[in-house]
Nucleic acid binder design. Structure first.
Length: 575
DNA sequence: GCCGTTTTCGGCCCGACTGTTTTCAGTCG
């Protein structure tokens, strides 16, 4: 059985939950969670690493013991400790942990006092009013649990970054409009431009925190106030999105931004540095042992106090950025949206796009681009009117005509050709070799075995007409898992063959994902950040691809469409 | 269970809010 990283992540997470329910030390529980996180972010397959004789205990948060357990899982498909733990605990109690207000202690009490072992049991007990029989459970707690069950545990739901942007902007605007507010920022995973966002962590700088909290709970988009204190509050918006607010004095603004922007591990790494110097870092600032504030007003000052360069929010994941920030010019100079000079992947009304070639071109011009590649689907994609060789030739003619009439923008005649199951391409070599750009993508048979799927891609790379690999992992965030491939091998072969790897900017795709980008960057591949726009508005989604590139630490120089048209042509391998 | 210019033990981030309770435990981020 092929063991995927995800299998190990899930086993470790279950292990952590069950140990926590059992009352095990939080540190041991945390160790499993940390290891799960590391494996989840790896980008390389653990089974393969073991095959290659790599030492897993080198990984962050993985020691001798857990390395041995990973090996056990990979070799046998089983995890003995977990099996035993499942036998002596009540595994279904994990369900209860997904309910806000219920942690390990309460789950345990619910089980021992009322025999509750599942969400269904809990619902029944709430309905029967039995919760109040337990010491420590009052009317309010019962109400909250009841409400949490009803709203479908939405707190655990994560949403696409693109889905919360409007709410986040609206919230920031509202907070900034308040008279007692000096500054406001939505932080957390939103500010780090992560793929998904659980809730909006907002930070406000003000001399009168209580007043801000009072005004905050009056925000018209709020459905329900969960908590309200002197300097913080939690609410649920009508959209179901949770907003946590924290108000600090201006002298703590920078430290609060760092604290709430996270990621947690980045912020803890900074705290550890403070502890090493007999100092303390919290959301109010950096303090010496006499509680004298050393820094806090701005993020830069905090980083400077640690002799670190400013770390961009997208990099704050404790993936080694703190160490780099300590070196002179150690941090990459991240790519920005302004570096992009063209888009190499979009669709038109010729296949399933909603904008004509001319409309797409006009928007590209407005965006200040020098070039735009029209890359409609190939014939295999019948349901989206994929183009035949004849269609493509006609389209190429139209594109060349348009090029004569458009000033300041060059259209490239291209195609997004399907990689068929056997790794051959959906259009003949002579048709493809006539095009300016050929993107090769998988749109079918996403569930092949690792071996078959990997070979399929390697075969496509062998074809000299394959210039770009489009949305290589084929995943859709929160919808569909990535295809199962030996990513490292595919990336290595692509690099050696001069094939460009796309970062697809569609907010549902963002593909390669950031872990893949880290791996590909380390391997030295060339990237293109493309929108894959299916409408004029779609061309504006470039930022999501840029954010993934930044989270993968990419600089301008690794991304071909930051260059001139000539440099793009040079970067495209020629058949 | 991890980790180490305090390295094989003894730490492990820490503060806010809530509810139900008379001083704090549980949960959350």
């Amino acid at each position: 059985m092929a063991v995927h990283n995800r299998d190990i992540v899930e086993m470790f997470e279950e292990m952590a939950d069950l140990l926590e329910l059992e009352g095990e030390s939080v540190f041991r529980v945390q160790a499993y969670r940390q290891a799960a996180t590391t494996i989840g972010e790896l980008g390389r397959n653990v089974s393969k690493m073991l095959e290659d004789g790599e030492d897993l205990s080198e990984l962050r948060g993985v020691g001798e013991d857990l390395a041995g357990k990973i090996q056990e899982i990979v070799e046998t498909g089983n995890f003995d400790d977990l099996e035993r733990l499942r036998e002596r605990t009540v595994p279904s109690l994990r369900e209860l942990l997904t309910i806000p207000q219920i942690g390990p202690k309460r789950a345990k009490v619910l089980h021992s006092e009322l025999g509750i072992a599942s969400l269904e049991d809990l619902e029944n007990a709430v309905e029967d009013g039995r919760l109040r029989e337990i010491k420590g459970f009052g009317k309010r707690t019962e109400q909250k649990i009841s409400a949490a069950i009803e709203t479908g545990r939405r707190k655990k739901q994560r949403r696409l970054l693109s889905e919360v942007e409007e709410a986040a902007q609206g919230l920031e605007d509202y907070l900034r409009s308040l008279r007692s507010v000096e500054d406001a920022c939505v932080t957390g995973s939103y500010r780090r431009r992560a793929e998904t966002v659980g809730d909006l962590d907002s930070v406000v700088s003000s001399h009168s925190p209580a007043k801000v909290v009072d005004q905050f709970v009056d925000y018209e988009a709020i459905d329900n106030v969960i908590s309200k204190g002197k300097a913080s509050s939690s609410v649920i918006l009508r959209s179901g999105l949770q907003v946590d607010l924290r108000v600090v004095k201006p002298e703590s603004w920078g430290s609060a931004l760092i604290y709430f922007t996270g990621a947690k591990d980045h912020q803890i790494a900074l705290r550890d540095m403070a502890i090493d110097k007999d100092q303390k870092l919290n959301e109010y600032g950096l303090f010496d042992k006499n509680d004298k504030q050393l820094a806090g007003k701005t993020e830069e000052r905090i980083y400077n106090a640690f002799k670190l360069a400013y770390v961009e929010p997208e990099m704050r994941e404790n993936r080694g950025e703190v160490e780099l920030a300590a070196k002179k010019n150690g941090l990459p100079s991240l790519i920005t949206i302004d570096d992009i000079r063209g888009d190499l992947h979009c669709h038109s009304t010729w296949s399933d796009g909603r904008g004509s070639i001319e409309e797409m071109a006009n928007r590209a011009k407005e965006l200040g681009y020098d070039y735009l590649a029209i890359t409609d689907h190939s014939k295999r994609m019948r349901m989206v009117n994929g183009l035949s060789s004849d269609d493509l030739q006609k389209q190429a003619e139209e594109i060349r005509k348009l090029n004569d009439s458009i000033n300041g923008l060059t259209l490239l005649a291209g195609c997004e050709v399907d990689i068929l199951e056997d790794g051959t391409l959906d259009l003949s070599d002579d048709v493809l070799s006539d095009l300016d750009i050929v993107i090769c993508s998988i749109h079918s048979k996403m569930d092949l075995s690792n071996k078959k799927q990997t070979n399929r891609l390697l075969k496509a790379i062998e074809n000299p007409n394959c210039q770009v690999l489009g949305h290589l992992q084929g995943r859709k965030i929160l919808e569909r898992e990535a295809i199962d491939i030996d990513l490292e091998r595919v990336l290595t072969e692509a690099r050696d063959a001069g094939v460009i790897i796309e970062i697809n900017a569609d907010p549902v795709r963002r593909d390669l994902d950031e872990n893949g980008v880290h791996l590909a960057r380390e391997l030295g591949v060339n990237f293109a950040v493309n929108t894959d726009a299916h409408s004029v508005a779609g061309l504006d989604q470039m930022k999501y691809g840029i954010w993934t590139a930044r989270r993968g630490w990419l600089e301008k120089k690794s991304v071909v469409n930051t260059g001139t048209l000539n440099s793009v042509k040079k970067a495209l391998r020629s058949a």
